[in-house]
Design a protein around this nucleic acid. Structure first.
Length: 741
DNA sequence: TGCCCGGGTGTTTTT
DNA sequence: CACCCGGGCA
């Protein structure tokens, strides 16, 4: 029980509360992981069987960390029996165990986004629809949205509002696409990400005996990051918890940032409606950040209307002010951050690993990479799933997947002619036609071309036979032998490694190294981290790998500056944080400024970013940057104005830096147009053309009247009165104004 | 059957 | 700018 001493009063109350529904509202940095781990340890200490505990986290990494921490308290033997992981991975495991209930193969494949899009592309083409109207990305988003709200294709098509919507948007066939998409997934023995949750719901709602089993097994359920659960996840939790109602959810409504994925902030706001006798705990003391950072963050989130009021505070030092830097271009921004980190580290302020650069979009990394490389700063980018998206890795995994599940259409298409074995487009087309006609998978046609009247030559037939025989021989080992051994065998016997060794292209060396890195990863996975773990199989690896992201690999050991999106930074903390690209249309994103809901989510995102920092926080913006291959000009983000200025210190660009990063020529020559910022088509650089008394139009402040001009041409500062906004001082070289008279 | 080139097109965030 | 797709050519 010693561990409880490490908690404050409120944390202790939450950790020691055992029975019944409970909601923990945990402010940023308030030690919620601590509370969760101690609560689980305490449950076990109090006699609860680890097998009856389910803990759902947001990332695999969070699960692993929590497991490690619990293991330190109660010993790894018991800790490993807790069912802990992300929603997707925990329920993928349960679906695997219960696959026959849904008529899925045990080794069903998990399709990633690329697989889903590829399948949709085929379907849209087969239906003869215009792929400009039916873009795979937006179609998938629509389907995903439907699944997360538990609309089956049938329910989707029967819903008047939905179909009317689709009709109005010129895409009346969406329902049918959804239906076909699901049929094809099923025929391929595959589930997409959303199916893992959707089908768990089906399992729990349509199979009473299965529901009974799991409801009784999992007597204690904990959900982390509850503010980011969607309807589908909410329903799973509700169904699983209905017998015992020992449900503990933890979250912070202020950090809900996954609305675009269907996350519903109301799940946390409405917890009390489902469980009126719930207990509420509020963790408001922040242990992570300086007072400056905590107070600044509070001042930001206060602008949101839709939230649970709470007072996050800290006993830490006041710390240094948040530094705001205005830079001239995106390259300048990269240069500035690189220099700043370099200076700090050289002066003994921490090491590279203590620094992080956070941004809104993945496309912002390039200038930082260049600047870091130039002065030899080690860095590491955590971008989604980049490693597993590489072609060579996907190819290898496609072999694994096809060996585990022969009906996996996307994998089949990927490897049937890789390495080249004379089974090209014609053969594939023929297989597809037959498969479609008979409603069977490509594999079934390949196994018995005659039966399905598949028009292929005898040469192709024998090559097909060789191919299927090879895959089937891999399949015999998929669930039994050591996953690494089999992976090794597959990469050799398929000819992949040989092909890469031939080194036709210089890139092949890198590809080979990547495949070897994958094999090493599999080895690590299958042998298990601790002795005593049984050796894992390749099909177990496939589940893991489908749900793995780069963020899961963020570790503190590598001494490098970390770069990631703000979304990926959730749950992490760093001594020094640079939030870059603080510009209108970028952050907040152009698409998220039109509704209060969207804008508030962007603001929560900013709140999340700010609260990642322990000691030092920098906010940067550039007055111009390349976007879309074009130079664009953006105003500083409105969020900068929303931070209480008491906590800020603002820097302009120094003169000598200006010489290194002069304003791009285009700025002086071309009138500003065609950028998203410029809503007024006639807005331009009016330097030298204004006189007091003139009426002008500003694209954000509206109509205004020039009161005063100061400074020499090219550097003028104008005082302009905008009826809507009041008096503003604008530097003409930056302001986009249209002269009205 | 496979490769190269050109045009068109789009970028938010992710399990 | 960077990617992806389709078309044309070897």
């Amino acid at each position: 029980m010693n561990y409880l001493k490490e908690l404050n009063e409120e944390q202790k109350k939450a950790a020691m509360h055992i029975e019944g529904p409970m909601l923990i509202i945990a402010g940023a940095g308030s030690g919620k992981t601590r509370v969760l781990t101690f609560r689980i340890a305490h449950l076990i200490d109090s006699g609860v069987d680890p097998f009856s505990i389910m803990a759902l986290t947001f990332t695999n990494k969070a699960a692993k960390e929590m497991k490690d921490r619990i293991a330190k308290i109660i010993g790894s033997g018991e800790a490993r029996n807790i069912k802990m992981g992300t929603f997707h991975s925990v329920f993928a495991g349960i679906l695997r165990a219960e696959s026959d209930r849904l008529n899925y193969p045990t080794n069903f494949t998990i399709y990633d986004t690329a697989d889903s899009k590829s399948l949709l592309r085929s379907i849209i083409k087969e239906m003869g629809l215009d792929d400009k109207v039916y873009r795979t990305g937006s179609v998938l988003a629509r389907i995903s949205d439907a699944k997360n709200k538990l609309f089956s294709p049938e329910a989707y098509m029967a819903n008047y509002d939905i179909t009317a919507d689709d009709f109005a948007s010129g895409k009346p066939k969406l329902g049918e696409i959804y239906k076909r998409y699901n049929d094809r997934l099923f025929r391929s023995g595959a589930m997409d990400f959303d199916d893992l949750l959707f089908n768990t719901n089906v399992l729990l709602s349509k199979h009473a005996d299965v529901a009974y089993k799991y409801c009784h097994q999992f007597q204690f359920i904990l959900v982390d990051e509850y503010q980011d659960t969607n309807y589908s996840q909410y329903m799973i939790v509700k169904q699983l918890a209905k017998v015992h109602e020992n449900l503990c959810v933890v979250g912070d409504d202020a950090q809900s940032i996954y609305g675009f994925r269907g996350a519903d902030i109301n799940n946390i706001l409405n917890f009390k409606k489902d469980y009126p006798d719930y207990k509420l705990f509020k963790l408001e003391q922040n242990y992570r950040s300086t007072q400056n950072i905590v107070k600044a963050a509070n001042s930001i989130i206060a602008k949101n209307k839709n939230q649970i009021r709470k007072e996050v505070w800290t006993a830490n030092d006041s710390g240094s002010r948040i530094i705001v830097n205005r830079l001239l271009t995106d390259n300048h921004e990269g240069h500035h951050v690189a220099q700043s980190i370099h200076k700090m580290v050289s002066s003994g302020e921490g090491d590279y690993r203590d620094y992080a650069v956070l941004y809104r979009t993945n496309a912002q990394t390039r200038p930082f990479e260049e600047a870091f490389r130039k002065i030899n700063i080690p860095y590491k980018i955590y971008a989604g799933t980049s490693f597993y998206q590489r072609k060579e890795i996907k190819d290898v995994i496609a072999y694994f997947r096809l060996s585990a599940n022969h009906h996996d259409e996307e994998s089949f298409k990927r490897v049937i002619n890789y390495p080249a074995r004379g089974l090209g487009k014609t053969t594939l087309d023929n297989l597809t036609i037959s498969g479609h006609e008979y409603g069977v998978s490509l594999w079934e046609v390949a196994m018995a071309p005659d039966k399905y009247r598949c028009a292929i030559t005898s040469g192709a037939k024998s090559k097909l036979n060789e191919f299927t025989t090879m895959i089937r021989s891999f399949a015999t080992e998929i669930d039994t032998s050591d996953g690494f051994k089999l992976a090794h065998r597959i990469t050799n016997e398929s000819g992949i490694i040989r092909g890469l060794r031939e080194l036709k292209e210089p890139e092949d060396q890198g590809r080979l190294e990547n495949v070897e890195a994958l094999l090493a990863g599999i080895q690590e996975f299958t042998q298990g981290s601790e002795s005593g773990d049984e050796v894992k199989t390749l099909s177990e690896f496939l589940i893991e790998v489908a749900l793995l992201t780069d963020a899961d690999n963020v570790s503190g050991d590598e001494n490098a500056v970390k770069m990631m999106t703000i979304h990926a930074s959730k749950g992490l903390e760093f001594d020094t944080v640079y939030i870059v690209g603080m510009e209108e249309n970028l952050f907040p994103a152009a698409q998220s400024m039109d509704t209060r809901e969207d804008l508030e989510e962007e603001r929560r995102l900013f709140y999340v970013a700010v609260t990642r920092a322990r000691k030092h926080l920098h906010l940067c913006y550039a007055t111009s940057r390349f976007r879309f291959g074009q130079l664009t000009y953006n105003e500083p983000s409105r969020f900068l104005e929303e931070v209480d200025p008491d906590y800020l210190q603002t820097f302009e660009t120094k003169q000598e830096e200006r010489q290194h990063f002069p304003q791009p020529l285009a700025r002086q020559l071309r009138p500003l147009s065609a950028t998203k910022t410029t809503t007024s088509a006639n807005a331009q650089n009016v330097s030298g053309k204004l006189t007091p008394g003139m009426e002008v139009l500003h694209d954000r402040f509206g109509k205004g009247k020039v009161l005063k001009l100061e400074g020499k041409v090219g550097e003028e500062k104008a005082t302009i009165y905008f009826p809507k906004e009041g008096e503003k001082q604008l530097l003409l070289k930056f302001a986009r104004l249209e002269i009205l008279n």
